[in-house]
Write a protein that binds this DNA or RNA. Structure first.
Length: 221
DNA sequence: TGTTGATCATGC
DNA sequence: GCATGATCAACA
């Protein structure tokens, strides 16, 4: 199953096929070993599902399925089917923001078409035994689209005004802006309060847990 | 107990 | 460092 799917139907068939499987079974089918825990393998679940579904590997700023325009997101859920974590969307540009609009943004593009695959995320379950849930192909409705745009514009405006370091993760209804870095020493260029360049932590856009929770509930309830 | 800020692995 | 894949763990 390493080849890219040709159609969304085919992609969904593959996703449905592994619903109910344990990650260890998928790993075995791919000749991979499941780690004992995710502490040092935080992206393992996502990468495993990428392999199985035939997503294009690599770290390019493209959708996971470029031909289909579909982004894959695995999402850890608790026993009630509720997301346990926020969902990373994309890095936030911190310079060269002049003239950048929502429609041109990576966030807008990535969220146009998302394949959500819930996976048991309770830390008491070893990764190999975690079960894959039913996939959900999602596109934001008009309301969501508008709220996402409002959040994005508000955050980007602050960044453009040199206030990136005043932005807190409390801000934003659906989207939040938080550090996205290897560690606190990984710095990148941004606009400072006086309009001069400063070095600051790279930031990323995340979807709030409460939003993805609603999203999953709306579909599966 | 939910969230925020920090962190881990990998490829280039 | 940047972009991919995210989860960890301290704190409110």
């Amino acid at each position: 199953m390493h080849n890219p799917p040709d159609t969304i139907d085919q992609l969904m068939q593959r996703a449905h096929h592994i619903a109910g499987w344990q990650l260890g079974e998928i790993a075995a089918a791919l000749d991979l070993q499941a780690p004992a825990h995710l502490r040092q393998h935080k992206g393992w679940v996502g990468q495993l599902l990428e392999l199985w579904l035939g997503a294009s590997a690599g770290s390019r700023p493209e959708p996971d399925f470029p031909q289909l325009g579909v982004e894959l997101k695995t999402i850890p859920i608790d026993a009630q089917g509720r997301p346990l974590e926020s969902t990373y969307v994309s890095v936030c540009p911190l310079t060269g923001l002049h003239g950048l609009g929502w429609q041109d943004s990576a966030v807008c593009h990535k969220l146009q078409h998302v394949l959500w695959i819930p996976v048991q995320g309770d830390k008491s379950i070893p990764p190999a035994q975690r079960q894959v849930g039913m996939p959900l192909l999602w596109q934001p409705d008009d309301n969501e689209q508008q709220q996402l745009q409002r959040d994005w514009e508000e955050l980007i405006e602050q960044v453009a005004l040199g206030k990136v370091e005043q932005i807190t993760a409390h801000q934003g209804e659906l989207l939040q802006l938080r550090p996205k870095a290897a560690n606190r020493k990984a710095l990148t260029e941004a606009i400072g309060p006086d309009g001069r360049k400063i070095m600051t932590l790279p930031r990323g856009f995340y979807l709030r847990t409460r939003f993805t929770r609603q999203l999953l509930q709306r579909h599966f309830l």
